[in-house]
Amino acid sequence: MLEAKLDQASILKKVVDAIKDLVQDCNFDCNDSGIALQAMDNSHVALVSMALKAESFQPYRCDRNIALGLNLTSLTKVLRAAQNEDMLTLRAEDAPDSLNLVFESKADDRISEYDLKLMDIDQEHLGIPETEYAATITLPSSEFRRICTDLMALSESVTIDASKDGVKFSCTGDIGNGAVTLRSHTNVDKPELNVDIELSEPVSLTFSLKYLVNFCKASALSHQVKICLSNEVPLLVEYALENQSHLRFYLAPKIGD
């Protein structure tokens, strides 16, 4: 059986909030190392990969591999009943028909309990190769969101150029052009505002802004976001959580002109 308790329901609420517009039905794959999810969006352009490590739960117990087939819209409805600060426990039998969710308030003695029906989801898993990216850019997640939403007002796609001079996000649209350039920047007092650019070779890739703006719904999970680029491979956008847990998005680049 599975029993996994989060100290803060907000973690799961934010994760599900961040992916529910990209993915509708998906398996939460539970094993002794934690709960993982891998799913593509309907158009097979983007891939979501979530890992909530066992260490992110206290306690965590999972005796056998269990796939929890969930409809994320339904899960959202149930999670809406949890306060951000509530403790959240997920429970399921070894071959479950439903997922049991318990929300416990820390402030008072309120306990709420829900059972969510599960579904059989036949999901393809893709092998994601280990990649040495040519450029790895770490920046405030709010800054990345701002850049993507600002540029989306002008264009459907953004070109990201990473060079020794910095990283440039630029777009061309019917009403005109736009570009935002960031350089490495260290803020000693507020490290969450740092911009770090690691580069082994210059990169230039074009991506659909619609998807990037969608990924930015995960900004609530982490002050910083890491974006990794190599020519002609999918972009990786990573929101790191505590205990090596993470939410990653991969996006196929646009090809040609």
């Binding site: 898993h125 893709l126 092998g127 796609s157 659909s208 196929a252 680049p253 646009k254």
Partner: peptide
Amino acid sequence: KGSQGSIMSFFSKK
């Protein structure tokens, strides 16, 4: 501008 590639052309099925 540019055609959208599929993620499946980069990552293979397990």
